[in-house]
Amino acid sequence: MSKALVKTDFNFPGQKSVYHGKVRDVYNINDELLVMVVSDRISAFDVILPEGIPYKGQVLNQIAAKFLDATADIVPNWKVATPDPMVTVGIKCVPFEVEMVVRGYLTGHAWREYKEGKRTLCGVPMPEGMKENQPFPTPIITPTTKAYEGHDEDISKEEIIAQGIVSKEDYEQLEKYTLAVYARGCEIAKKMGLILVDTKYEFGKKDDKIILMDEIHTPDSSRYFYAEGFEERLAKNEPQKQLSKEFVRQWLIENGFQGKEGQKVPAMTEEYVNSVSDRYIELYENIVGEKFVKADLDDVAARIEKNVTAFLSK
């Protein structure tokens, strides 16, 4: 289990600061570039779990890189290079303080709200008479505030504009980009026998231009269903077979943990950690449609330092 990269403490050429997130560590290089190291940490219920998952960072980084390349004709994105399997170097932007969540199906948070009798989510109406996992007539955007600590909160388009979080003009452009990138993600997923159920995007601005940032269409930021058997399961009100980190959340719930006060994270055995690693590799191969090539795990931190330093020194 010690092979997983759970902590980074690099000092790259030109480094001005570092931000340690739940999963990603982001290094600011001369206020021009960001070096995003996708660690093997895993979080659920807003808690970082005690063990890292080997190859998880590589899986997430490589999926995001592929989808950024596959949508670059729709919206400019922040990616400049991937000098290491676990690293993306990109343009430093000023982030918008909202996350654009787009939902094609009534599931997850939206379903929980719906089940409680609510028929609007983030100011967006949801039709009467729907059932869990049913597709919406057209995809809906349900934005959230961007919390650097604690939980993101639902917010409506009207509130975002009224509070001056994002201008009306920029927000309407974000909506267009969100729907177009989601539509492309759905097309690609369909070819892989998958359904891109819902996902979230983050955008920023650089030189007055809107830029798509961070990760996209990964199993950490998105929910996928298997297309085969979807209609039958929907008709029988059965749970859908899904590709996301939901299986980790389910394991935690079964072991008495939901991130609530006083609850203790269950022990993660080496066997369980390896099974999660295998699941992430399976996610990669299903989403991307290519065999996953494992990077060398002998000294991951040294490998990253060498690769990133060589890139920045060019």
Score class of each variant (00 low, 15 high):
Met1Gly: 06
Lys3Glu: 15
Lys22Leu: 10
Tyr27Leu: 08
Val37Cys: 13
Ala44Thr: 00
Phe45Cys: 10
Tyr55Ile: 02
Lys66Trp: 11
Ala70Phe: 11
Trp78Arg: 03
Pro83Gln: 11
Val98Ser: 03
Val98Thr: 08
Leu106Gln: 11
Thr107Glu: 12
Lys115Phe: 04
Gly117Thr: 07
Cys122Arg: 02
Gly123Val: 06
Asn133Gly: 05
Gln134Trp: 05
Gly150Cys: 11
Ile155Glu: 09
Glu159Gln: 15
Ile165Glu: 08
Glu169Cys: 04
Glu175Tyr: 01
Tyr177Leu: 00
Thr178Cys: 06
Tyr182Cys: 01
Ala183Asn: 04
Ile188Cys: 03
Gly193Tyr: 07
Leu194Arg: 02
Leu196Tyr: 07
Glu202Tyr: 05
Phe203Val: 04
Asp207Gln: 12
Asp208Phe: 02
Met213Glu: 09
Glu215Gln: 06
Ile216Val: 14
Tyr224Glu: 02
Tyr226Trp: 05
Glu228Asp: 15
Glu228His: 07
Arg233Pro: 00
Ala235Ser: 13
Gln240His: 09
Val248Leu: 10
Gln250Trp: 08
Leu252Lys: 08
Ile253Arg: 15
Glu254Asn: 15
Glu254Tyr: 04
Glu254Lys: 14
Asn255Val: 11
Gly256Gln: 11
Phe257Asn: 06
Pro266Glu: 00
Thr269Ala: 02
Glu271Trp: 04
Val273Trp: 06
Tyr280Pro: 00
Glu285Ala: 04
Asn286Gln: 13
Ile287Phe: 00
Gly289Lys: 03
Lys294Gly: 04
Asp298Lys: 15
Ala302Phe: 07
Ser313Trp: 00
